[in-house]
Design a protein around this nucleic acid. Structure first.
Length: 529
DNA sequence: CTAGGGTTAG
């Protein structure tokens, strides 16, 4: 291998911060015609495909096929096919498929596996299946790839299960990657039973205590809400890596058991395991849900002390934590210091400001966000509508609602509708509010009806109120609280016989009007870090 | 020399 090429490969292995330089070196190498074997071309292509730059891979490939008297071979095509897949470039993949047939390497195992991946990844499941079904000598990668295809967007779990059985029947030994793929899909598609079958297989094949497999298993049980099972697996692991720690901590946060998540930090420190960015994000979320500022600051100090990289995730989680714990100024300091913000950063801050009573400021931030070119998403609009609702900004609320649908083509969710109904109701625009309720799917109308009925009471709109009360009663299986609201409304309207009826109905549901109780959180006596 | 999987924020 010539010297410039070697230098190139060295620079390819270095992190991506010097890509510009790298591309120049490469261009020069290509122009000066120093790559004169297809093996060398393949080496470059492989290195490039690993840097997650499929477009570059294809550009280099174009140079390759233009060069005289050296040709791509069976080592080249898998890289090209995989790059086409990652680019979602169907024509390029199909073209390459045609080419491999033409040059006669279409029966190469690696080429075929790459083709399965390409078709599966681009959603052409039938084509993927055809390659898979017609090939002979399938190996474990072929099986993993086709199984992975079925676990994609469509998540055809039954199909996947049949394939897995087929694999076992053919005597192909599933490996740890098979297990990870299957468990991930089971977790995402709520396939508890199938996941348990996989767990059994793992034990039978002696794949327990393999970190990757056990981590996938742990995630699976966490996804299924089986934190106890996840903990059992966690405790049983002799060697724990950071991912395993992160998963179990995230599990407790997800299960709304933040104290236990924070407790794990202590164990982690005892075992001299350093938390990383992911750990920090989960721990900050735990502090947020506890509204424990002291604890949040402690985590922040860990970030500073351990030189943990303050990436977008960490910074956004910090902002969120400070808002939820009442550290508004700290939240804003971090926000303003950030050079690069994404939609999550903006949304967290907009929501935080809205919840802290700075609704106008929140809306200003939304405008800034749009000006800056960040596309708001569903959650961003939940936050902005919350701001409008709280401050009674009817015009802004309606404008934003319209903008969400017309400019950003976001389908309004129940939350958006409910917010808007509340905004209109509180402003006394009761009939408009009613119109919006009719767009909500019937089974989700409860909150909106409640809001509107309360508004009817405060605006003494008895006729509309009666209509809404009727609709509420038709929903059936109402809670205690709703019955109280109804009877209060009837009392307000002076319809005492209706009050009586409501109380009777309430009794029938075996409920009693409860004394008003509210709960406040006392500082935890438990020792937290 | 080539193909396939995985944790975190609103």
């Amino acid at each position: 291998m010539c010297v410039p090429l070697k230098a190139l490969l060295v620079s390819l292995k270095t992190p991506s911060h010097c890509t510009k330089k790298l591309d120049q070196t490469l261009a020069q190498t290509i122009i000066t015609g120093l790559i004169y074997t297809n093996k060398a071309w393949n080496t470059i292509l492989r290195a490039y495909s690993k840097t997650n730059k499929p477009i570059q891979t294809l550009i280099i490939y174009n140079h390759f096929i233009q060069s005289n008297s050296i040709y791509p071979d069976n080592y080249t095509y898998p890289v090209i096919i995989s790059a086409s897949a990652r680019l979602h470039c169907v024509p390029k993949g199909k073209e390459t498929h045609a080419r491999v047939v033409k040059v006669g390497v279409d029966s190469d195992l690696y080429v075929q596996n790459a083709l399965i991946y390409f078709y599966g990844f681009t959603g052409l499941l039938r084509d993927a299946r055809q390659v898979f079904d017609t090939m002979c000598g399938r190996d474990v990668t072929s099986w993993n790839t086709i199984i992975g295809c079925y676990g994609g967007k469509t998540s055809l779990r039954t199909e996947m299960m049949i394939l897995f059985r087929g694999m076992v029947c053919e005597g192909v030994r599933a490996d740890r990657i098979t297990m990870v793929i299957l468990l991930t899909v089971c977790g995402q598609s709520r396939g508890l039973e199938f996941g348990r079958v996989i767990h059994g297989y793992i034990v039978k094949m002696g794949m327990e205590y393999e970190l990757n497999v056990e981590n996938a298993l742990l995630d699976f049980y966490i996804e299924m809400g089986r934190i106890h099972m996840a903990r059992e697996i966690f405790d049983g692991m002799a060697e724990k890596d950071i991912v395993l720690w992160n998963s179990i901590i995230h599990g407790y946060v997800k299960e709304k058991r933040p104290e236990e998540a924070l407790e794990l930090l202590v164990y982690m420190e005892n075992e001299l395991v350093q938390p990383d960015e992911t750990t920090i994000v989960s721990l900050l979320t735990a502090c947020s849900s506890l509204s424990n500022l002291k604890c949040g600051r402690h985590i922040h100090r860990i970030v500073l002390r351990n030189n943990i990289k303050q990436d977008l995730f960490v910074q956004t989680a910090l902002i969120n934590m400070y808002f939820k714990c009442g550290g508004l100024e700290d939240a804003m300091i971090i926000f303003f210091k950030m050079k690069h913000k994404d939609v999550f950063t903006w949304t967290t801050t907009i929501e935080g400001l809205a919840r802290s009573g700075f609704e106008t400021k929140a809306l200003k931030l939304f405008n800034q966000m749009e000006k800056q070119g960040t596309r708001p998403n569903e959650a961003t609009f939940v936050s902005t509508l919350t701001a409008c609702r709280q401050a009674g900004l009817v015009d802004d609320g309606c404008r934003l609602f319209k903008r969400m649908i017309e400019v950003y083509e976001i389908q309004p969710s129940i939350e958006h509708f409910t917010s808007l109904v509340e905004l209109l109701s509180k402003a006394g625009l009761l009939h408009q509010a009613e119109e919006f309720i009719s767009v909500i799917v019937p089974q989700e109308r409860l909150i909106a009806y409640k809001t509107l009925l309360s508004a009817c009471m405060s605006y003494s709109e008895i006729n509309l109120g009666l209509k809404i009360a009727d609709k509420l009663l038709h929903l059936g299986s109402l809670s205690n609280e709703v019955y109280v609201l109804l009877s209060n409304f009837y009392a307000e309207a002076g319809l005492w016989y209706k009050v009586e009826e409501t109380r009777k109905a309430m009794k029938e549901f075996n409920m009693r009007k409860q004394t008003g109780v509210s709960y406040i959180e006392l500082p935890s006596s438990r020792k937290l870090p």
